[in-house]
């Protein structure tokens, strides 16, 4: 399992940043990413052959974090005895970039998170999200355009 430790140490923050940017709910994302890595550890003997284990972890974490049925189930489940510690900052990033990201449609947010923060290729991002590569390019273009407008507006207001 040493190679799992290497992947975890090298990529955990990348996974966390990408899912945090895509979902925005920090406590839920902390739990979801930790859970996704735990599932990866559980099935590591087969997952180590996966062409992109980080993409697998991010996708599982996205599914966990945004899945309504799972949240509903958690309300009833026996509490997990060992939740990971939480950081001092319990809320999502709240400055203008994070706010502008939050305002994007979900799919655009996910594409930004995976392409820019997880550094996945357009092809890998498309496979992970179940959309065509061309659609990834379209979402990213629109997302950056929206971010550019939002941040320019903020800059303009700040100058006034």
């Amino acid at each position: 399992m040493d190679d799992f430790a290497e992947i975890f140490d090298a990529r955990r923050d990348v996974a966390f940043r990408a899912v945090l940017a895509a979902v925005g709910d920090r406590p839920a994302v902390e739990d979801a990413v930790a859970e996704a890595f735990a599932r990866a550890y559980q099935r590591w003997p087969s997952l180590r052959e996966h062409p992109h284990p980080l993409a697998w972890v991010i996708k599982v974490a996205l599914n966990i974090a945004r899945s309504g049925w799972r949240r509903r189930r958690r309300e009833f489940l026996t509490p997990d005895p060992a939740p990971g510690p939480t950081g001092p900052d319990e809320g999502p990033p709240d400055d203008r970039v994070a706010e502008a990201l939050k305002a994007l449609p979900r799919r655009q947010r996910e594409v930004v998170a995976l392409r820019i923060l997880a550094d996945l290729s357009a092809e890998e991002t498309g496979r992970l999200l179940g959309i065509a590569t061309a659609t990834v390019h379209v979402h990213l273009h629109r997302a950056l355009q929206s971010l550019r407008e939002a941040l320019s507006t903020v800059e303009a207001e700040a100058e006034c």
């Binding site: 966390f16 940043r17 940017a21 930790a34 890595f37 950081g87």
Partner: peptide, 9 residues
């Protein structure tokens, strides 16, 4: 923006 975000686990 996300450079300081670290998974606490």
């Amino acid at each position: 923006e996300y450079a300081d975000a670290e998974l606490p686990a």
